[in-house]
Nucleic acid binder design. Structure first.
Lengths: 184, 184
DNA sequence: CTCCAGATATATCTGAGCGATATATTCTCG
DNA sequence: CGAGAATATATCGCTCAGATATATCTGGAG
């Protein structure tokens, strides 16, 4: 049976401790969403499929009358996850509306084009700040002998700061009067 | 009528000169695909919609017996494009299977985890090289008074080189014996 | 003390996107 | 000269996103 990458995200999210579908989605939204999102429309059907395939085992854990299922990875599921982790990555996909607008910005006057750079700059600074606020959680995982969430998080911080800096440099370059003379 | 971002990609691709559906797709694959892909499944239906909405005008331009339609942007289409370019960007989405695997790599021994970093490193170096080979084309556009394709291209080169460098630094950090001692 | 909005929790459905596939014609290279 | 790749248009089936639906609990405000 062929698993989608999001099936592996689910296996990865419960590799250290069992979790419910709702908890998995919340965890994805707080961690991997920056480089791999997953929706409710995927998580619940995939949990079902993984359960039927014996890769996870669900158990009822109601709170009061609220229905709740907690899923644990099985030995077979762990093997499947490890095999997948060993394969070279295959999917890289980016959608950046800011870069798209910048690409076509020659249609506008330079002052207006610079506005796109300012929007991207603000957005990336905001993301970097949000990622920084997650550092304590990732440092906790490091203490639990798992360095990778922190490595990836710090990479995300560095990337967003690079991107914001790049936007600043490109805005300066764009509005540089000397360069404007030459491109007029 | 609400247009999808890919409709604007099409408008942008013909803002400087008229093009066929096939040419638009080829151009997207060579330029914006790194930060905004578009498929045949989108381009032809969108061209139809844009034509019906009066934002583009198609004209027959067969080569021999091969059917071919060339689309030009209309004045109304240009206004629509300019309005869209002035709005702050809204969509940012990333899917990076390498970062996803790195995030969960604690499930593997460090030597195997480093393999993911090496794969990403090789991939980003390759992308940077491919983007470099496009610089002449983008410099031609600069000569035509449009600096933005080159700005975005050079940003893409810088980003991929940063990413490759980051992979190198993280691999060194991961395999550093002193750090391994401390995390054991 | 009561009520409500947000949180928790599961689940699905619809619209949009992707890319494989289909069909047709032309051109280049071995 | 022929075959494969390129050019050219078009669609279909599968997958994904997230809005929506339904249900229960909790904390804070009035």
């Amino acid at each position: 049976m062929e698993l989608s990458p999001t099936a592996y995200v689910i296996l990865g999210m419960i590799s250290r401790e069992p979790r419910s579908g709702y908890e998995i989605k919340a965890l994805v939204d707080n961690t991997t969403r920056f480089f791999w999102a997953a929706s409710y429309g995927q998580i619940y059907p995939q949990l079902k499929r993984l359960s039927e395939a014996g890769l996870v085992a669900g158990s009822d854990a109601p709170r009061g009358e609220r229905k709740r299922t907690v899923y644990a990875i099985t030995a077979e599921g762990r093997r499947e996850l490890e095999d997948w982790l060993r394969q070279p990555p295959q999917t890289v996909e980016m959608r950046e509306e800011g870069l798209l607008k910048l690409f076509f910005a020659g249609v506008l006057p330079p002052e207006e084009a610079a506005e796109t750079l300012r929007s991207m700059h603000a957005y990336r600074r905001d993301i970097a700040a949000r990622l920084r606020s997650m550092e304590p959680d990732a440092e906790e995982k490091l203490a639990q002998d798992d360095p990778f969430p922190l490595i990836v998080l710090q990479g995300g911080i560095e990337f967003n700061e690079w991107f914001a800096d790049w936007c600043e440099r490109m805005e300066a370059r764009l509005l540089d009067p000397a360069r404007r003379e030459r491109s007029s």
